[in-house]
Every structure is written in structure tokens, then in C-alpha cells.
């Protein structure tokens, strides 16, 4: 049976790495977008306070809200990370599966 486990493992690792490399810029982009949104909202809150449109209590309340918004953003990053891991595992398993199929074909 033509099945080289070392070669298969190497190929599996390469497939997983390819997924990580391909998906990383996407995650980086999401983090950057979240940080930019945070910056804009914090600036909005600061300007409203500096212009006297809101008082200290109101600013505190909106900053408290902003913490929750930021958490929602980080949860999106968590989903991205999990999805990337899922795709990498599946790409590696796919390589393994194909190697087994090929070995079987040669046997038959």
C-alpha cells in the first residue's frame, strides 16, 4: 500500500498553514475596523463632553455602553478565529482523506 504517513502529515501541515496565511489578513482587517469604529465613537463622546453637550454622568454612561460595544466586536474576532481553525483542521483532514483514497486506488 502506497501510503507515506510522514509525507501525508507534512502535506496536512502545509494545507493548514495555507489556510492560516490566507485568512490572517481577513482577521487583521476586522480588528482594524473595530479599532477605527472605537476611535470614532470615543471621539464623538469626548467632543460632546468638551462642547458641554453632555455632563460627566452622561459621558460615564456612554463609556460604559462603549465597553459593551467593544466586547461585541471582540466576539466577532473570536468567531473569525474559530472559523479559521475549523477551516485549517478540515483542510488538513481533506489531505489525509485524499492520501488514503490514492493509496487504496493503487492497492486495487
Amino acid at each position: 500500500m502506497d501510503f507515506d504517513i510522514n509525507k501525508t502529515l507534512e502535506d496536512m501541515l502545509a494545507a493548514a498553514t495555507k489556510v492560516f496565511t490566507g485568512k490572517w489578513p481577513e482577521i487583521e482587517g476586522i480588528v482594524k475596523t473595530i479599532m477605527q469604529n472605537e476611535k470614532e465613537t470615543l471621539l464623538m463622546i469626548a467632543e460632546a463632553r468638551l462642547n458641554g453637550e453632555i455632563d460627566d454622568d452622561e459621558m460615564k454612561g456612554r463609556l460604559k455602553q462603549e465597553k459593551k460595544v467593544f466586547k461585541a466586536g471582540l466576539l466577532a474576532v473570536e468567531i473569525a478565529g474559530k472559523k479559521m481553525a475549523q477551516d485549517a483542521i478540515n483542510a488538513a483532514l481533506d489531505v489525509f482523506w485524499k492520501a488514503v483514497k490514492t493509496a487504496l486506488v493503487t492497492v486495487l
Binding site: 476586522i30 465613537t41 463622546i45 460632546a48 456612554r62 455602553q65 460595544v69 461585541a72 466577532a76
Partner: peptide, 21 residues
């Protein structure tokens, strides 16, 4: 207040956006 309504609108928009992502 107008400033509060604007901040709330922006914060809610961001949460919806993160859910969509």
C-alpha cells in the same frame, strides 16, 4: 439630547455591524 442620540445611534450601528460580520 441630540449628542446622546447620535452616540447611541453610532454604538448600536457598530453592534449590528459586528453581529453581521
Amino acid at each position: 439630547k441630540t449628542a446622546l442620540a447620535r452616540i447611541d445611534r453610532a454604538q448600536l450601528k457598530n453592534v449590528f455591524f459586528y453581529m453581521l460580520i
